[in-house]
Design a protein around this nucleic acid. Structure first.
Lengths: 90, 90
DNA sequence: ACCTCACATTGAAATTTATCTATTTGATAT
DNA sequence: ATATCAAATAGATAAATTTCAATGTGAGGT
């Protein structure tokens, strides 16, 4: 894991709108259209944030016909946690 | 903890140069002048990144005469970890 | 085939962040 | 006092990110 990869993972958490999306996903899997209703942004902006969230590995998308259902990825979050744990080594 | 505060914490981890600084601090407390030698950036740029790192709570600075000695903050890292743990609740 | 719906992509504008040079501040030493 | 060194601040520019309007794509439905 190099500096760039680490940064990519944590980009999920360094934007207010993305944090809001993560909090919404805490309630369980949600499709993009539902997230869009809850957020005060346009559809392309949401799409942009969802890409960053998926690239980070913190969120995964499940395609279902026209819809994409997004949810938090335990694996992705674990990976981020492991890096923080690594920083605590003395 | 609102969205903005969370974002502020994780800003520490979403820039390549800041990740490099964190890795350097993993070796123990270091003064700014030493970090400067290791990084390929100017002194004001380092100063800018150190401010973001300190604002995030992930790094703390200890003033000692003309010098400032920086080190990783276990408390700050723990706070970030707790947030990630929170995201894993089902 | 055509229409509609959900989402992605393009391209451009606005905002934020990163970076530099120049200068200032604050501490120590002479 | 003044000179020096470490770090912060100011101000400007460059680069990256966020955002939106417009358009494209792909999956169903009629």
């Amino acid at each position: 894991m190099n500096e760039k990869e680490i940064a990519t993972i944590f980009k999920a958490f360094c934007d207010e709108n993305r944090i809001r999306i993560l909090l919404l996903l805490l309630g369980g899997e949600k499709c993009a259209c539902l997230l869009l209703e809850e957020m005060n942004i346009t559809q392309p902006t949401l799409s942009h944030h969802m890409k960053i969230l998926c690239d980070s590995g913190i969120v995964v998308g499940r395609k279902d016909g026209k819809w994409i259902h997004y949810s938090l990825s335990d694996e992705g979050i674990e990976k981020a946690q492991k890096y923080l744990e690594f920083l605590r080594r003395k």
